[in-house]
Design a protein around this nucleic acid. Sequence first.
DNA 1: CTAGGGTTAG
Length: 670
Amino acid sequence: MRIRGLISPLFEACKDGKSVAQLHSYILKNGLIHDSFFVTKLSASYIKCFSLKRAHKLFDETPRPSVYLWNSILRGYSREKQWKTTLHLFLQMLSSTTITATGDVKPDNFTISIALMACTELSAIEMGRAIHGLVKKSKKIGSDMFVGSALIELYVKHGGMDDALQVFDEFPQPDVVLRTSMVTGYQQSGHAEMAISFFSRMVVMEGVSPDPVTLVSVVSAGAQMLNIEVGRCVHGFMIRMGFNVHLCLVNSLLNLYAKTGSVNNARNLFMKMPQKDVISWSTMIACYAQNGKASDALDLFNEMIENGFEPNSVTVVGALQACAAACDSKEGRKIHEIAIQKGFEFEVSVSTALVDMYMKCSCLKEAVDLFKRIPKKDVVSWAALIGGFAQNGLANESIGIFHTMLCSETRPDAVTMVKLLTASSEIGNLHQALCLHGFLVTSGFDHKIFVGAALIELYSKCGSIDDAIRVFEGINDRDVIVWSSMIAGYGIHGLGREALETFDRLIETTFLRPNRVTFLSVLSACSHSGLVGEGIKIFDKMVHECRINPSLEHYSVMVDLLGRTGELEKALQLIDQMPEPAGPHVWGALLGACRLHHNVKIGEIAAKNLLRLDPDHVGYYALLCNIYAADGKWHNAAAIRTLIKEKGLKKMPGYSSIDIGKELHPFLAV
DNA sequence: CTAGGGTTAG
């Protein structure tokens, strides 16, 4: 007995497999190997030192391995993520127990939880259910929290939350880890509201204190719901409890602020963080990139490198989003270089972000070349290409790529379909629209609300307002975007009254708040139908009741609206009132109106401003020329013509196209 | 001896 005490401390001292092997041979030489105490200790030490092979050899040489020996070898394989071997060994253990004469080698709670983890990782849900059946037979194993945790994890990932909840409910006094697993489970399976309500019940009704890990899951749920209140609550709670040192928790909070667009909150938190890691930096960079602060994102990216942090693929994706948003292909190329250097250029998320960046910067060739070289393309990469062509005005190419995607056996998803609908609406072929709609119905994507909105736009642009209305009326829980699309649809068709009625219906029958796009659609509808008084009222409502700051686009629509009915002075006044200098669209709208109403005086003002902003835009010269001509000022008109010639400007020819007997991909045919 | 958590592409 005393020899055990003497040798035991030596196991603890082992730092690598070699020193364990030394002990091993000592034990062999002295005939101690038949003592299962030493065998277990040896195996555990091998595993601790990551010497799985030696441990397995010892295991093979041991005639009747104890549960502990089984467990240590299982743990070894599970820690190395060799799940197949883990599960295989577990099954071997199950069958060997029936043979062993002693009969006391049965999997215990430890064994079971490892086996369940393996099932989760291997998506072996049926095997997992079988093991669950085994668990139910033993009270001791069934009431083990670790087993419960592994079961919940299994069902969260592969069964469903109902099964997970059943497991949870079997525990009379579940601990905070089990509760957290449920919160996380709801969150990860897309039921963020359920996650929050489960959490609230646990804290309020059952008086259980959450720990930092619980809060991380709660914050993730809040981020998913874009609920900033959740963030504020946890933030306050965190400060009171002194949890602010937990990096994961702060990072998830940072992400919540990022997702909800609370850039200032995110920035303040980031600045105050006592320690930051790659994830903190990446999250903050993505926050800037996704919230219209591209240059801040790129600055931070460089600052991160200066601070000695290594960007990973996630960081790079955020930086690329910033380049895409800023249409900055120069920075984009630099970051591309970094991705190549670090060897993650062809991680699919990175290559996709690169394709998107090149597309947004109108570098089509780079985008396509890179796309071709992506080894494992998925729907998202294809969608980046499809969307890219559409954004660059190449709708037919975009649809062609979609066909190629279908031929490569990649199933489209809802987002891809929206990109395709947008591309198709540029073409305006109603037959194509009907085919796409047919496909959406059979694939079930038409239930997604953002697909509905795109479909309304598609039908409107293809000239079938009736189909657009049918889609609109068929949507049960319409959001602001759907309403805005319908209003815009009426606007395109010159149905200003209907657009206004729809807007009123939105205000009166829903609790939704019209946003800037909604207003843009109504105003544009008013403009197209010459409803000046109504348009002015709506504009007033937007500014004073809804407190929406008009953007340049709103102003240009208003200028267009006033200009169409000849209120050119009023239009000019509105431009003067603008908080920021008017852009080309605003002046362009005014110039167009001046052409319509033969107003040379204001027309010259508009043209002067336009040519200052964009001196090489031939269309503006042409408009001004026409104004002079209409007014009989042939001298001025001729002067402009000469100027155009001197500058070597050419007018882009307009064109239109029709489809002749072009077959759609059979996949889309109805 | 064992369980739950944070950043990513269209």
